[in-house]
Design a protein around this nucleic acid. Structure first.
Lengths: 218, 218
DNA sequence: GTATAATGTTAGACTAATCAAACAAAATTA
DNA sequence: TAATTTTGTTTGATTAGTCTAACATTATAC
């Protein structure tokens, strides 16, 4: 059994390596807000437990075992978020913090029941895929809004940031998953975009925002 | 903010003092399965925090502040148990272990929502009262089955033990809250009882069991 | 009312998780 | 390539929570 602390390292390592498969001690340190020296010693410990492949001065990689265990934590996180939204009526901007805590509960029966009540969902309220019971995760290939050009149409399917602030911003613009947006203009100097969607709604979005919006081109 | 460990001491202290108001270091030690020396040092710490009135070699007492904070944890525990039974469909014998974990979540919004979804319940699935938001608890005056005499009738309203084993035992005898039982006989040598209830059901219950069953005399 | 048992406290050691400071390696810049 | 910056590691200290062993107090038994 891993401690709560170890679970947080695993989960963060998993999230950071979703892109490249490899993570620097420095990145992990920043992401966890824990000093590099501490991260190094924890990596040695997780290496002992065969969860991380660690060699001095080399990038960090999760082992298959590590990926599996991290996947199970992320499964619990995402099932929880879905439960909070669908069953308990929370907004998608409210659920991340609560799920951060609930994901550490040790009760397979609890999460099985959650899964069942939700009808075995495959994505969470932010469009992220829910790993299966063995911890395996299946990513859909989405396009970033920021990679679109004028005239492209995108059906929003996921956001890559679940912070309260960001989601509140989207709420205030009535941007939610499923909405079809059309790129009207792209400013070359800051890569901000003007998009239209819904009934005549038009908005200008910064690159920072566009980069976090994923969807399917239509 | 109290640590998870401190919360467990507070909660247990509260539960043990429900009877007499005072608790021995030894009792607390046994109940938590933590050595007395450790309990002593934690008592000093909680005393610093004004949660426990501690004097060497004297029985332990929670301060008003301590009672309040313990009450809030117990509120979260009992609301959770009710939620697990009423909303999620767990059996009353399954919920204690899960609630032990959920009670430590730091999210007033979560527990407010639970409370609301349940219609602001005043008792948990085992008949124990749910403290109010300020941590205050209101005990009903129930009679123990073990204090009844032949001919007495008792409507079961609470159990004083929520362990899986005990509740499974009650399930197997179809004994649940609300059932009206009648005392048919009391064995003087071991204080076991023969009771009747439901449609012609008759059972012999040990003193250990009778002592844990509370209800209203009718 | 002592002797013994039970209960409670103190002291010292250990582990997990953290940090700061010193040091080492790798990457970047000039 | 040498100097500098960034990244990573080691060492030693700290805190929370735990234990064991020795000691102290209170309660119980005879």
């Amino acid at each position: 059994m891993n401690s709560l602390t170890e679970e947080n390292y695993l989960k963060t390592l998993f999230a950071l390596s979703e892109q490249t498969g490899e993570v620097n001690v420095n990145d992990l340190s920043k992401s966890l807000a824990i000093k590099m020296s501490t991260v190094t010693s924890m990596m040695k410990k997780l290496s002992e437990k065969k969860l991380v492949a660690y060699e001095s001065y080399k990038p960090l990689r999760l082992t298959e075992k590590g990926k599996r265990e991290a996947g199970i934590i992320i499964r619990k996180h995402r099932l929880t978020e879905m439960f909070l939204v669908k069953i308990m009526g929370f907004g998608w901007e409210q659920v991340h913090e609560i799920a951060e805590q609930v994901e550490h509960l040790q009760s397979p029966e609890f999460f099985d029941k959650v899964d069942e009540m939700l009808g075995f969902p495959t994505v969470d309220p932010h469009g992220s895929p829910i790993p299966d019971k063995s911890g395996k995760i299946e990513w859909k290939q989405y396009s970033k809004l920021s990679d679109c050009v004028v005239g492209d149409q995108l059906k929003l399917a996921a956001v890559t940031n679940s912070s309260n602030d960001f989601l509140k911003f989207l709420n205030s613009r009535h941007l939610k998953l499923g909405v079809k947006v059309k790129v009207k203009a792209v400013e070359s100097f800051d890569k901000s975009m003007v998009i239209s969607y819904g009934k005549n709604q038009q908005e200008s979005l910064s690159y920072t925002v566009c980069e976090k919006l994923l969807g399917e081109k239509i």
